[in-house]
Each structure stands twice: as C-alpha cells, then as structure tokens.
Nucleic acid binder design. Structure first.
Lengths: 258, 258
DNA sequence: TGTCATATGTGCGTTACCGCACATAGTGAT
DNA sequence: ATCACTATGTGCGGTAACGCACATATGACA
C-alpha cells in the first residue's frame, strides 16, 4: 500500500520491463501519426524516466528536446517574480511538451515540471522541426494540439477568475486522473496548492470537504478518487469544456486524414 | 471633445477617406509578409468598419473570415454558462482574429468582440488557409503569432490568480493604448469590468485610485492615460512579460527571414 | 431649458481567501 | 521503540472582492 518516490520508480520498472516497453503509440500524438512519419520519427524517440518535481523545461530557456508523455504528467507552471506560481496547462499522454519549438519561439515564459512521475518519449528538437518542416501530417496534428493547449489555457484563466478553490481542485483532479492509468495519484496538498496558485490550507479545506462527501480519499500524499461522478458534479463547467473541445479537436483515428 | 459611438464613425471616416485608406501594412502581420504573399493575399483583403460591441466571432461557431485589425481592438472574451465573462486575450494591429482556422479547429470556445471601434482587414477563411497551406512565410509568421497569443493567455491566467483589480486594470489599459493611435480610449467602467471579469464597482474603485494619483483621467466612457510611466510602475509584471515576449517572438522586419 | 438615460460614486454587510501560528498525525530511519 | 520529518488540521485576525441598494452626476436630446 505504501508508495513513496523510490517505490514509484520500481512500480514503473515493473510495468515497463525490457520485454514490454510502452510503445510510442501510448502517446496520442505519436499514435496518430501516419506510418511514413513514424518510420522517420520513431527511431529517434528515446524513452526516459521522469521523476516527480523534475524540471524538463525552464521559462525563457531554449528547449533542446520535446517530450511525449506516456504515463507521466507534466505541468506547465508559471512562476512569478515573487515566487508565487500557477499552473497554466497540464500535459499527459494526450499531448507533448515543447510546442514552442515548432511555433518558432524556442522557449516559453512557463516552466515544465513533472507533476506525476513516469515515462515519456524524448525527441531531439531539431528532429521534430525537420519533420514539421516537411509540412505533412505532423504539422497539422501539432497545430490541432496547439489549439487544445490554447483552450486549456483560456479555461484556466477563466476558472482562476470565477471559481472556488473547491471547484478548481475538482477540475485539477479530473484533468489528472484522465491522464493516469488509475484513479490514484501521488501528490501532496502543498504541491496542489502550488499548481492552483492558492494556499496549502485552502487545499486542505477543499480536500476535506470532498473527502467528507465521499468523493476522494487521501492521506499523506496519496489521493484516490472514489466517486468520479460526484467529482464531476461538484466541478465547475471548465473541465467539461476543455474535455469536449479536446475530443472535438483531436478525435481518435485522425492520422492521415488532414 | 465629445466622442460618442456615432462620432467614432465620423472620426474614422475622416481619418480614412477614399484618398487615404490605411494600407494593409498598418497591420503588423500583413506588413511582415514577403512581396509574393502580399501579391496573392492583398487583392482579397477587404477593409471593414467594426463597431463597438460588435461580435465578429462567436464561441463554438465556425469562423468564415479572419480579421486583421488596423486601428480597432478586438477582445477574445470567454462567456460562462451563468453569464459571467472574462477576457482571454486582446488583439490589435499586432495580430489577427481567427487563428482557429489555420490551427484546424475552425472555431474556439471564446467570443471575439470589438472593444474599440475602428477598421480591420477581413479575409475569407479559405483564402487564408490556402495561403497557409503553401507552407511559406505566412505559416511561420502565424505560428509565431500563435505563440504570442498563448503567452498572453497564460499571463492572463496568472494575473487573474494573483493580482489586484487595480493592477489588472493597469495591465488592461496598457495593452489597450499600445494598440491605439493615442492615449485616449472609449470604454465605460461597466465594459472594463466585463473584460476583467470583476464587478463594475471594483473598476470604479481602482479607476478612482488611478485618477487621484494623476495616472488617468476619465469621465463617462472616456479614459485618458496622462502618465504612462506611473501607470507602468503601478502595473504588475504581467504587462511587461507579455510585451517583451511579443517583441522577442515578432521582431520588426522579419519578413522573408523564416 | 428641462428631462431622461446612462455612467459613476458610495456605503453596507457578507464571503472567500490570505498569512500566520501552532497542533496533530502518519512515516521512514535509526 | 524512538525520533525526526513531513503532511495535514485548525484557529484567528485581516483584507479584497462580492452583491446589493441607492445616491449623484453627466451628457444627449427633445
């Protein structure tokens, strides 16, 4: 029952033995690529382990690699001058980290932090750009994904403005477990507070309410969603808006259909 | 001295007589295009007048046209189920409205509203897509602009989370006058409140403070920035972050240099 | 000039969240 | 078993923004 940071590693290793590495297709973007693109890209993909809290992209620094999460989750976090922070968007096996590379900026104003340990496929930035500049399926796929990101950011802005900590916590939990294999996540309330840009005590309050309603169970860095339906009902509209828009923009089986 | 909605029209007409239409180059994006692209695009650009409050793109509805503002300002506004709203980003002659067209989504979850009346060049969506699909300078220019939008949205999210109404009002004023020919804007506190997603009284308070500090002058729908330096000093970091990132991503004279 | 709609000012109690201080409880290391 | 560390619980005063009600001022227009 006990899962601590080192244990996470062993769990991951157990899941992904040499005999059963998660294929690149575990990532939605890599999956949707047509065969010819895969042939060019896949040989250069490198499966890497990402540890909780690891920074894979710093604000203002040129990104050398892009990452396609398979079972890890990456937070795009904005850190202000005074140290306060806020999550801008979250990326799991539905997306990639490093859109600034093909957008032309090479860097962004936000930091990419591992929010849930796991694996990701890493690709050298120039390789991505080369394929992007062939102006084929990859370009159109990444463009659509960029719009998903845009939508998520916009919704985050709105949610920050109008919704309570409890509602935002619900949204955050839903976004997280959607990107995880089960309804169990490793995350302290302190870290969640950093993501949401609120006080730790505020998260304690909100989480307490959810626990008392039988929506979640948590203790010392573990959170389990036990009643997803109720969680969705308690959440603000923001989660559903983002989810539906993502599904609209990136329907499954889109590869080669651009 | 009196400028009301009808007067705005006459002012605009005075400025842009048949003899002196603002050229497409008044818009930064159109300006940066290399000659061959201009040759293909410009014949299809249509100068249109945009009235205050006009909706040129509705959430969830396919956009038929894209707009390149010349002296108008467009707000990307998210309207929630309960009617509350918040501005996600603002577009002036530095950008365009309708990125969803080339991103592939055809529509977004936000509404595009005219925040400041004026003119814009309108282009049929398919024309833009056609040029985009030539995979030339336009593609790379619009990608960079998309990153500017992304940055602006991210910063809006953070600003909503951490900064006071007064600071946000400063940011909003600066973003606005940067896109206007002078330091004078037509905007009631009620409308500003809608943009910022706060109460009208909150804007009254904040505006009152700024006025008492000699930073702005306002009365019945007119706001004039009289001390920009002080305004910037009173503002949060958000304005400068977005401004610098925009300048980095879209330096002048970039055309043909992709 | 008077009238009216609209924009702005102001006061009040309420709420959500903050910042801080400190108490309590799991958990790993020894 | 003990200790130290970290995560979580809780209380308290302070503050920013809210919702509401209503007062006042300004400019447009008859």
């Amino acid at each position: 029952m006990t899962i601590d940071p080192p244990a996470v590693k062993s769990v991951s290793e157990k899941t992904h033995t040499k005999a059963a590495l998660p294929p690149p297709e575990t990532n939605r973007l890599l999956c949707e690529l047509p065969p010819d693109v895969k042939l060019r890209i896949n040989p250069h993909l490198e499966l890497v382990e990402l540890k909780l809290g690891q920074v894979i992209g710093e604000a203002g620094c040129k990104m050398r690699y892009v990452y396609f999460p398979v079972d890890s989750i990456i937070s795009l976090l904005y850190v202000m001058e005074n140290g306060a922070s806020a999550e801008i968007a979250v990326v799991g096996n539905d997306g990639m980290v490093g859109v600034a590379l093909f957008m032309g900026g090479e860097s962004t104003t936000s930091r990419a932090v591992v929010q849930s340990a796991g694996y990701a496929y890493k690709l050298f930035g120039q390789r991505l750009k080369d394929e992007f500049n062939r102006h084929g399926a990859l370009l159109y796929l990444l463009l659509r994904y960029s719009q998903v990101l845009l939508t998520q950011m916009a919704q985050t802005a709105v949610c920050n403005r109008h919704h309570s900590i409890e509602q935002q916590l619900c949204r955050w939990l839903l976004l997280s477990i959607d990107r995880l294999p089960n309804d169990h996540l490793l995350m302290t309330q302190e870290l969640i507070a950093n993501m949401l840009g609120v006080r730790r005590e505020g998260v304690t309050d909100a989480a307490g309410k959810l626990q008392r309603q039988g929506i979640i169970n948590y203790s010392r860095g573990h959170i389990e969603v036990v009643n997803r339906k109720l969680l969705e009902a308690t959440c603000c509209e923001c989660y559903n808006v983002v989810k539906h828009e993502s599904e609209r923009l990136m329907p499954p089986g889109h590869c080669g259909k651009f």
